[in-house]
């Protein structure tokens, strides 16, 4: 998949040239491209003088980063303790069945990536589902969430 190298350069240029900026830059890649592209890592390694192996290791370590392209929308099912007690695993199952994917996977049409996340700190909404990091849904009824998911194209 070709990546807009101008965007890559733009993101990198916005940061101080120091190892300290690596994680933030990788996260910006993730936000921009829905994953961390190989081209981006290579460029970063070259410009910052940090071995490619180290940047790649970060990509495999941090959960916020994905090395595979993810969907246009991320559907995060919170599996924090409160959500677990209130049936989060059922919510995961129901959404997974509907989208025909397992947590961590992306639908074939690249519409959704389903993720589980260890607590978004919104326990009053438990079990809670967060779409695109901004829309919070109370998950008491998984059916209701399925209805809402239809609004994401």
């Amino acid at each position: 998949m070709a990546v807009d190298t101008k965007k890559v350069d733009e993101i990198i240029a916005g940061y101080e040239k120091s190892e300290e900026s690596l994680l933030a830059i990788l996260q910006d890649f993730q936000r921009e491209f829905n994953y961390v592209p190989e081209e981006g890592m290579e460029k970063l390694s070259e410009l910052f003088g940090v071995p490619a192996s180290k940047i790649y290791a970060m990509g495999t370590f941090y959960k916020a980063l994905s090395l595979e392209p993810t969907g246009r929308h991320t559907c995060k099912v919170c599996t924090g303790t409160a959500c677990h007690l209130k049936g989060a695993s059922n919510v995961v199952d129901v959404i997974g069945r509907q989208l025909k994917i397992r947590p961590g996977e992306t639908t074939k049409d690249m519409r959704f990536t389903l993720q589980t996340v260890n607590c978004v700190g919104a326990c009053a909404l438990a079990p809670v589902v967060v779409v695109d990091d901004k829309d919070y849904y109370e998950g008491a009824s998984p059916q209701n969430i399925l209805k809402n998911l239809k609004n994401y194209k």
């Binding site: 300290e20 990788l26 970060m58």
Partner: peptide, 22 residues
């Protein structure tokens, strides 16, 4: 900004993460 790793709440891991490492 953290990277989504619970272990980074541990002090020495947090510091490595601030430094831009695993």
């Amino acid at each position: 900004r953290g990277g989504g790793a619970f272990v980074c709440g541990e002090s020495s891991a947090l510091m490595r993460s601030v430094e831009g490492k695993v």
